[in-house]
Nucleic acid binder design. Sequence first.
DNA 1: GCACGACTGGACCGAATGGTCTAGCGATTC
DNA 2: GAATCGCTAGACCATTCGGTCCAGTCGTGC
Lengths: 181, 181
Amino acid sequence: MTAEPTTREKLTLAAAELFRRQGYHATGVAEVLALAGVPKGSLYHHFPDGKADLARAAADWTADLIARILDDAFAPAPDWPQGVATFCHKLARLFELAAEANACPISALLFDGPQEGGFRDHAAALLDRLLAHAGAHAARLGAPDPQEKGETLLIAVEGAWTLARARRDSDVLRRLPGRLA
Amino acid sequence: MTAEPTTREKLTLAAAELFRRQGYHATGVAEVLALAGVPKGSLYHHFPDGKADLARAAADWTADLIARILDDAFAPAPDWPQGVATFCHKLARLFELAAEANACPISALLFDGPQEGGFRDHAAALLDRLLAHAGAHAARLGAPDPQEKGETLLIAVEGAWTLARARRDSDVLRRLPGRLA
DNA sequence: GCACGACTGGACCGAATGGTCTAGCGATTC
DNA sequence: GAATCGCTAGACCATTCGGTCCAGTCGTGC
């Protein structure tokens, strides 16, 4: 059974959703609260540093999400190219879920955040972990130059998402595997 | 001789700079004013719609800048791959100019803007013009499938800039031509 | 059933934001 | 040299922002 999400989870999810759609600075704390259905007091109980804490939690949650999608795509794949294909399709579906104004989860959540407090370094570390994750899958599947393969995938996905966003069409993401071959 | 920039130009430049570094929403009008060295009244004289107008002007200016760099790189190139190499190197230099927290000019200025008033569509149109521009160079240089070539270049540049930003190192951009080959 | 601590609920606050308004400056024209 | 007009200058304003604070509530251990 799905347990009722805790207040902390509700806040993290709402923040991740809104920060991705509108960006960190364009989103008010009140909006997050409204979407989560949680009063202000609770936020500052669970996240003493307020909005900045929320950004960190949302970034962590999103990095986990991407890592999970990465695993789901590559674990059953017979080789690297097929894993890439599955991964891109999964991302395309993720793109389509949020029809309006959906920035790339990775860049939006990792780079639009509080300017102080080492958020930037934290985000860079998360990205490096994702890169290593992708590289590990490439190595496991026997792809040559796995590190580079992972980097290329991430670069391509990042760029393709931007284009898809501009066009409001996931097609670029869907056709990315062909372009990478 | 270089003419003294007009107030309008000073404001546009300052806005483009700050919006790119920090994002639209994270930048206050006062900051733009301070960097431009212009009082508030002048802003609302030249840009009646205030910050939103500023975003449009900054986006236009940036799109022109990228188009100019594109032309500078591809005009003297003997073939497409060499043009790509030059273009990437020029972008890497642009990256290094703003040492701190520099988002990709394209995505930052085109996608982080006012939510109302068709800014999004305007930005999408600018991006399409850039794509067409790149495609035209590819066609002129006799590259096969020029439209696709242009798209691939833009996707790669967009993604590579993101990675470069995370690492604060333009290396990814510099080595992009090799990756594309 | 009482005491306690974790958590919720929301009124409240100072600061900062984007935007308005009007007085005045300086060049150009008659 | 007076009138005009494009533009500058910055005081001022309403609103919204993120954040604080404390009274109340609920579940748990005694």
